[in-house]
Write a protein that binds this DNA or RNA. Structure first.
Lengths: 88, 88
DNA sequence: AGTCTAGTTAGATGATTATCGAATTATCGA
DNA sequence: TCGATAATTCGATAATCATCTAACTAGACT
Protein backbone atom coordinates (compact mmCIF):
# COMPACT_ATOMS: atom_id res chain seq x y z
CA UNK A 1 0.00 0.00 0.00
CA UNK A 2 1.50 3.30 -1.06
CA UNK A 3 1.40 6.32 1.19
CA UNK A 4 -1.15 8.11 -0.96
CA UNK A 5 -3.70 5.38 -0.49
CA UNK A 6 -2.82 5.13 3.16
CA UNK A 7 -3.62 8.79 3.70
CA UNK A 8 -6.77 8.60 1.61
CA UNK A 9 -8.04 5.81 3.79
CA UNK A 10 -7.16 7.68 6.97
CA UNK A 11 -9.14 10.65 5.73
CA UNK A 12 -12.03 8.47 4.72
CA UNK A 13 -12.24 7.09 8.25
CA UNK A 14 -12.08 10.49 9.86
CA UNK A 15 -15.68 11.42 9.30
CA UNK A 16 -17.95 9.68 11.83
CA UNK A 17 -20.83 9.39 9.45
CA UNK A 18 -18.69 7.92 6.73
CA UNK A 19 -17.22 5.47 9.19
CA UNK A 20 -20.74 4.47 10.17
CA UNK A 21 -21.55 3.81 6.53
CA UNK A 22 -18.41 1.78 6.06
CA UNK A 23 -19.21 -0.12 9.18
CA UNK A 24 -22.60 -1.09 7.81
CA UNK A 25 -21.11 -2.15 4.52
CA UNK A 26 -18.59 -4.28 6.38
CA UNK A 27 -21.30 -6.05 8.32
CA UNK A 28 -22.94 -7.41 5.18
CA UNK A 29 -21.51 -9.28 2.29
CA UNK A 30 -23.12 -6.65 0.11
CA UNK A 31 -25.21 -3.56 0.74
CA UNK A 32 -27.11 -1.20 -1.53
CA UNK A 33 -27.17 2.57 -1.13
CA UNK A 34 -30.90 2.44 -0.60
CA UNK A 35 -30.41 0.05 2.31
CA UNK A 36 -28.12 2.53 3.97
CA UNK A 37 -30.67 5.27 3.50
CA UNK A 38 -33.23 3.07 5.13
CA UNK A 39 -31.02 2.73 8.19
CA UNK A 40 -29.62 6.18 8.76
CA UNK A 41 -31.02 9.61 7.96
CA UNK A 42 -28.99 11.01 5.12
CA UNK A 43 -29.82 12.53 1.76
CA UNK A 44 -29.01 10.62 -1.39
CA UNK A 45 -26.57 13.31 -2.45
CA UNK A 46 -24.59 13.17 0.75
CA UNK A 47 -24.52 9.41 0.74
CA UNK A 48 -23.32 9.39 -2.83
CA UNK A 49 -20.55 11.75 -1.86
CA UNK A 50 -19.37 9.56 1.00
CA UNK A 51 -19.53 6.42 -1.08
CA UNK A 52 -17.37 8.10 -3.67
CA UNK A 53 -14.75 8.84 -1.03
CA UNK A 54 -14.76 5.25 0.17
CA UNK A 55 -14.44 3.90 -3.35
CA UNK A 56 -11.75 6.46 -4.10
CA UNK A 57 -9.78 5.32 -1.10
CA UNK A 58 -9.99 1.80 -2.43
CA UNK A 59 -11.85 0.59 0.63
CA UNK A 60 -15.08 -0.24 -1.13
CA UNK A 61 -16.01 -1.66 -4.48
CA UNK A 62 -19.32 -1.35 -6.28
CA UNK A 63 -21.32 -3.71 -8.40
CA UNK A 64 -24.17 -2.30 -10.40
CA UNK A 65 -27.26 -4.36 -10.92
CA UNK A 66 -30.23 -2.68 -12.47
CA UNK A 67 -31.21 0.28 -10.40
CA UNK A 68 -29.12 -0.79 -7.49
CA UNK A 69 -25.53 -0.21 -6.58
CA UNK A 70 -24.21 -2.92 -4.33
CA UNK A 71 -21.21 -2.13 -2.20
CA UNK A 72 -18.67 -4.43 -0.70
CA UNK A 73 -15.75 -3.89 1.64
CA UNK A 74 -12.42 -4.75 0.07
CA UNK A 75 -11.11 -6.79 2.94
CA UNK A 76 -7.66 -7.22 1.50
CA UNK A 77 -7.17 -3.46 1.39
CA UNK A 78 -8.56 -3.14 4.88
CA UNK A 79 -6.11 -5.72 6.16
CA UNK A 80 -3.26 -3.93 4.46
CA UNK A 81 -4.29 -0.68 6.08
CA UNK A 82 -4.43 -2.25 9.51
CA UNK A 83 -1.07 -3.85 8.96
CA UNK A 84 0.40 -0.50 7.96
CA UNK A 85 -1.02 1.12 11.08
CA UNK A 86 0.38 -1.68 13.14
CA UNK A 87 3.89 -0.70 12.15
CA UNK A 88 3.65 2.61 13.97
CA UNK B 1 -12.47 3.05 24.31
CA UNK B 2 -15.58 5.16 23.86
CA UNK B 3 -16.71 6.29 20.45
CA UNK B 4 -15.79 9.90 21.10
CA UNK B 5 -12.17 9.02 21.65
CA UNK B 6 -12.26 6.66 18.73
CA UNK B 7 -13.38 9.41 16.39
CA UNK B 8 -10.92 11.88 17.86
CA UNK B 9 -8.10 9.48 17.12
CA UNK B 10 -9.35 8.85 13.58
CA UNK B 11 -9.36 12.58 12.96
CA UNK B 12 -5.94 13.00 14.47
CA UNK B 13 -4.56 10.44 12.03
CA UNK B 14 -6.21 12.01 9.02
CA UNK B 15 -3.72 14.79 8.55
CA UNK B 16 -0.53 13.50 6.89
CA UNK B 17 1.70 15.91 8.69
CA UNK B 18 0.24 15.06 12.03
CA UNK B 19 0.63 11.39 11.28
CA UNK B 20 4.25 12.03 10.42
CA UNK B 21 4.75 13.71 13.78
CA UNK B 22 3.06 10.88 15.61
CA UNK B 23 5.18 8.47 13.70
CA UNK B 24 8.34 10.16 14.86
CA UNK B 25 7.15 10.21 18.43
CA UNK B 26 6.40 6.51 18.21
CA UNK B 27 9.90 5.72 17.00
CA UNK B 28 11.52 7.14 20.14
CA UNK B 29 10.84 6.46 23.74
CA UNK B 30 10.52 10.21 24.15
CA UNK B 31 10.78 13.17 21.82
CA UNK B 32 10.82 16.92 22.40
CA UNK B 33 9.01 19.43 20.24
CA UNK B 34 12.32 21.01 19.35
CA UNK B 35 13.55 17.68 18.03
CA UNK B 36 10.59 17.47 15.70
CA UNK B 37 11.27 20.97 14.47
CA UNK B 38 14.81 19.95 13.73
CA UNK B 39 13.55 17.11 11.55
CA UNK B 40 10.68 18.55 9.60
CA UNK B 41 9.97 22.10 8.45
CA UNK B 42 7.09 23.39 10.52
CA UNK B 43 6.48 26.51 12.56
CA UNK B 44 6.35 26.24 16.33
CA UNK B 45 2.72 27.32 16.33
CA UNK B 46 1.60 24.69 13.87
CA UNK B 47 3.51 22.01 15.69
CA UNK B 48 1.96 23.07 18.96
CA UNK B 49 -1.46 22.84 17.38
CA UNK B 50 -0.86 19.31 16.11
CA UNK B 51 0.56 18.15 19.40
CA UNK B 52 -2.50 19.47 21.14
CA UNK B 53 -4.71 17.38 18.87
CA UNK B 54 -2.68 14.27 19.55
CA UNK B 55 -2.78 14.83 23.29
CA UNK B 56 -6.46 15.63 23.10
CA UNK B 57 -7.10 12.38 21.33
CA UNK B 58 -5.30 10.62 24.15
CA UNK B 59 -2.65 9.25 21.80
CA UNK B 60 0.24 11.17 23.26
CA UNK B 61 1.25 12.24 26.72
CA UNK B 62 3.62 15.03 27.66
CA UNK B 63 6.18 15.39 30.38
CA UNK B 64 7.53 18.83 31.04
CA UNK B 65 11.12 19.20 32.09
CA UNK B 66 12.50 22.68 32.30
CA UNK B 67 12.15 24.29 28.90
CA UNK B 68 11.41 21.05 27.18
CA UNK B 69 8.21 19.18 26.56
CA UNK B 70 8.85 15.50 26.08
CA UNK B 71 6.23 13.51 24.23
CA UNK B 72 5.47 9.83 24.42
CA UNK B 73 3.08 7.58 22.53
CA UNK B 74 0.48 6.00 24.78
CA UNK B 75 0.84 2.50 23.45
CA UNK B 76 -2.06 1.12 25.39
CA UNK B 77 -4.43 3.60 23.75
CA UNK B 78 -2.91 2.87 20.39
CA UNK B 79 -3.47 -0.84 20.84
CA UNK B 80 -7.05 -0.21 21.87
CA UNK B 81 -7.61 1.86 18.76
CA UNK B 82 -6.19 -0.84 16.50
CA UNK B 83 -8.29 -3.43 18.24
CA UNK B 84 -11.39 -1.33 17.71
CA UNK B 85 -10.59 -0.93 14.02
CA UNK B 86 -10.01 -4.63 13.78
CA UNK B 87 -13.63 -5.25 14.68
CA UNK B 88 -14.87 -3.63 11.49
C1' DA C 1 18.53 42.52 34.77
C1' DG C 2 18.97 40.92 30.13
C1' DT C 3 19.04 37.47 26.54
C1' DC C 4 18.19 33.19 24.44
C1' DT C 5 15.53 29.13 23.73
C1' DA C 6 11.12 26.28 24.15
C1' DG C 7 6.64 26.32 23.78
C1' DT C 8 1.73 28.37 23.90
C1' DT C 9 -2.02 31.36 22.61
C1' DA C 10 -4.72 34.49 19.85
C1' DG C 11 -6.36 36.01 15.68
C1' DA C 12 -6.53 35.88 10.72
C1' DT C 13 -6.59 33.62 6.33
C1' DG C 14 -7.21 30.20 2.92
C1' DA C 15 -8.34 25.56 1.77
C1' DT C 16 -10.94 21.66 2.38
C1' DT C 17 -15.11 19.42 3.07
C1' DA C 18 -19.82 17.91 4.74
C1' DT C 19 -24.23 18.93 3.63
C1' DC C 20 -28.29 19.98 1.08
C1' DG C 21 -31.75 21.07 -2.79
C1' DA C 22 -32.52 20.75 -7.50
C1' DA C 23 -31.78 18.88 -11.85
C1' DT C 24 -30.43 14.70 -14.31
C1' DT C 25 -29.80 9.79 -15.81
C1' DA C 26 -31.19 5.19 -15.80
C1' DT C 27 -33.97 1.23 -14.64
C1' DC C 28 -38.01 -1.09 -13.40
C1' DG C 29 -43.27 -2.08 -13.41
C1' DA C 30 -47.88 -1.00 -14.70
C1' DT D 1 -45.50 5.46 -22.35
C1' DC D 2 -45.93 7.03 -17.68
C1' DG D 3 -44.67 7.12 -13.03
C1' DA D 4 -41.85 5.52 -9.38
C1' DT D 5 -37.38 4.35 -7.49
C1' DA D 6 -32.10 4.45 -7.34
C1' DA D 7 -28.32 6.90 -7.79
C1' DT D 8 -25.25 10.77 -9.60
C1' DT D 9 -23.97 15.49 -10.55
C1' DC D 10 -24.00 20.46 -9.95
C1' DG D 11 -23.88 24.55 -7.38
C1' DA D 12 -24.20 26.77 -3.13
C1' DT D 13 -23.53 27.26 1.81
C1' DA D 14 -21.64 26.67 6.17
C1' DA D 15 -18.40 24.57 9.10
C1' DT D 16 -14.04 22.76 10.00
C1' DC D 17 -9.27 22.97 10.00
C1' DA D 18 -4.19 23.64 8.76
C1' DT D 19 -1.23 27.23 8.63
C1' DC D 20 0.97 31.47 9.59
C1' DT D 21 2.52 35.86 12.16
C1' DA D 22 2.80 38.18 16.28
C1' DA D 23 2.56 38.48 20.98
C1' DC D 24 3.19 36.06 25.06
C1' DT D 25 4.97 32.94 29.24
C1' DA D 26 8.51 30.59 31.40
C1' DG D 27 13.10 28.48 32.12
C1' DA D 28 18.19 28.61 31.65
C1' DC D 29 22.42 30.95 31.56
C1' DT D 30 25.58 34.94 31.88
Amino acid sequence: MDSQQFHRISKALADPRRYEILSRIAKCRELACSDVRGEIPITAATLSHHIKELVNAGLVEMRREGQFAHMRLRRKVWREYLSQLGKL
